[in-house]
Amino acid sequence: MTAKLELKSVTKSFAQQKVVDDVSLTVATGEMVCLIGASGSGKSTLLRCVNLLEAIDDGEILLDGFDIAEPSLPPDPIRRRIGLVFQSFNLFPHLDVLSNITLAPCRVLGLEKSIARDQALDLLERFSLADKAYSYPDHLSGGQQQRVAIVRALAMEPELLLLDEITSALDPELIGEVLDVVRKLKAQQMTMLLATHEMSFAREIADTVCYLDRGRVVETGAPEQIFNDPVKQRTREFLARVSG
């Protein structure tokens, strides 16, 4: 397998504090990598760096072997290749579901409006949201909003999908429907980097699990190894804490 995404010694600080500290990580094409770690361990910041929403201080971010962290590069053509789904959905409240999904394909990819609509309706159909096409985000449940947000990212046909704590803002009974969407994407071999608090989900779905603590990678490995037989003391302590 070839590396879709490779991080080399990525470092990012906010006001003297290193939030991401010398992180190196590889996501192969079609692979699902889960980032686990306590709140504030740098998972979200790392994802925002990969999407170039935050500029990194040092290191390299290679997408298909090409360093996208080069400061002189225009970010927009790179961002459209990488999808990002947020913890708080961030749907556009003034647009209905269909327009939320078609905005970027129409404006950025220059797709014909009717083609973009058909594609969006197809996607909505696939994720059982077809009846919500003309609803506004405020009238949807959190789980539905998050599924629409995933569809919105997918409509750009990203090569890499970043999922940032996508179930953390949801009521427990709504988490399942969102995770089902991720399972579907995994079955379609979507390349994904996911930050999560759902340990059992990470264990079930990840090809590789990466434990972050205070911005540093503590341990990376297959889920069975990380969850059953962690090498590092800190990983063991973290897993004991979260499994409570």
Binding site: L53, S88, L91, H94, L103
Partner: peptide, 28 residues
Amino acid sequence: SSQIAASRSLGLSEGETLRYVVLPQAIR
């Protein structure tokens, strides 16, 4: 700012974000 982040993450430029995401909400 999360609205701007969402728009930029989809590849919309600064100007497109202003026109299609920020201004419609601001004016409304």
